[in-house]
Design a protein around this nucleic acid. Sequence first.
DNA 1: AAAATCGTTCTCTGATGGAGAACAATTATC
DNA 2: GATAATTGTTCTCCATCAGAGAACGATTTT
Lengths: 253, 253
Amino acid sequence: MTDGNAGTVKSVETMFAVVDVLRERDGARVTAIADELDLSKSAVHKHLSTLRNHRFAVKEGDEYRLGLGFFGYGSYVRTRYDVFRKAKPLIRELADETGEMVWLITEENGMGMYLFGDGGSLDVNVDSLVGTWRHLHLNSGGKAILSRLPEERVVEIVERHGLPRRTDATITDLDELLAELETVRERGYALNLAEDMAGIHAVGVPIVHRDRVQGALSIAGAANRLTEDRIHDEYADRLLTAVNDLELNLTYR
Amino acid sequence: MTDGNAGTVKSVETMFAVVDVLRERDGARVTAIADELDLSKSAVHKHLSTLRNHRFAVKEGDEYRLGLGFFGYGSYVRTRYDVFRKAKPLIRELADETGEMVWLITEENGMGMYLFGDGGSLDVNVDSLVGTWRHLHLNSGGKAILSRLPEERVVEIVERHGLPRRTDATITDLDELLAELETVRERGYALNLAEDMAGIHAVGVPIVHRDRVQGALSIAGAANRLTEDRIHDEYADRLLTAVNDLELNLTYR
DNA sequence: AAAATCGTTCTCTGATGGAGAACAATTATC
DNA sequence: GATAATTGTTCTCCATCAGAGAACGATTTT
């Protein structure tokens, strides 16, 4: 527990290293992987064969890439989230209605992950954000989630993952974050005023079900459209209503 | 090569076994996994810790489940497919226009996988099919893909994965399949007349780019709406046009 | 044509994966 | 409510196997 990787399976650890090289390089050949990881070619080859047998890697000529096996298991994991299945049609609706991006984010081990996103024109590529890990303090959905966690967990999370800065507006101080979360609790929704990406504003509302935060919905878009005023006047209420519907849906349907 | 799992890493193999138990059981506890796999508790525990460190498993109380790590890597793999990124908006459009389900399927190691799907009133159904492996002979998109593979590869694939029957209409004979693929080549699109699921018809068109099949688009829906006649008269042409657009998009944009 | 580099398949050995015992904590049973 | 059974986790320790290195033919470079 104190030691990070005590009691782990080393060869699985190296397998993950191989996988990460394949991901970072968008595919690689045996020798390149062996060089990068300081492993013998034979060892790397053995790992790649193993991965291939389980469809987690594919071989194209002499180049190996990650296989669709990951997508298969990944889709399964997402589909297991009740909140995803129920939020998806709602998100579509909200995206069509507002013309902005609408996101579902959830938390695991103190980090956030976008489970689904829709809408928005060409500003941000939705698909490249889905499935990526995000620090929770950097976005409205993440802050909405944090606002519903016990303070000791928030502190724990910040200690583990830190509060990296992305823009001038990023909250990088724990006390400041805790104060902001108090505001979020009172108000019912969280803002993101260019704290992650310059020029992008957002509102986020936590999804609570059975006394647990299941995630958060958020609306994000260009700062000149999603002004602070319009968020308070229009978007926040629309989002609160949507989340309320969703929470009822989670309970009764 | 002859021996299926010669030259593989055994402990990675057992890791995958653990992962599969977690998937099949929708989460499990240490002892249950150890019992099922005939492993010691300590071994299973070590594997679970390793998986957890890499976010491929999470622990909730004493129960372990697969983690969002899979979804992260899975999303990456899908996004790497150019054909997915470019087909997605087109599929949305087609789904809205026709009111039927529209699918993108691709092939890896002789099996098909739905990369994306949209539309249809049975919206729930869509997400449970995305990310699952499908035999290629069972659906229109798969047959469309097969029609563009060299005959020896088709034979190879059938030898490896067989031609399992799903309904009365399923093609279970290799020669019959090869003949059908010839028809598909001449006509440009493949049909699926309740060969996988009773009451479901579909049309599929292969997506060819740089002399390789990148996948196939298909339209699927209730047999009483997608009658054979209407497929030939309406849907096939609409789909061929869409795929043609997509192929140009793949080349020039 | 020669040299270099590649992926794959061997053999071999030291590191380590997995069994089993021990433990406290929890749950089941009476 | 006390006892017994079962749990997850952490040890130690030995037999296994993960990984190094050499050898191979096939490609690619020079």
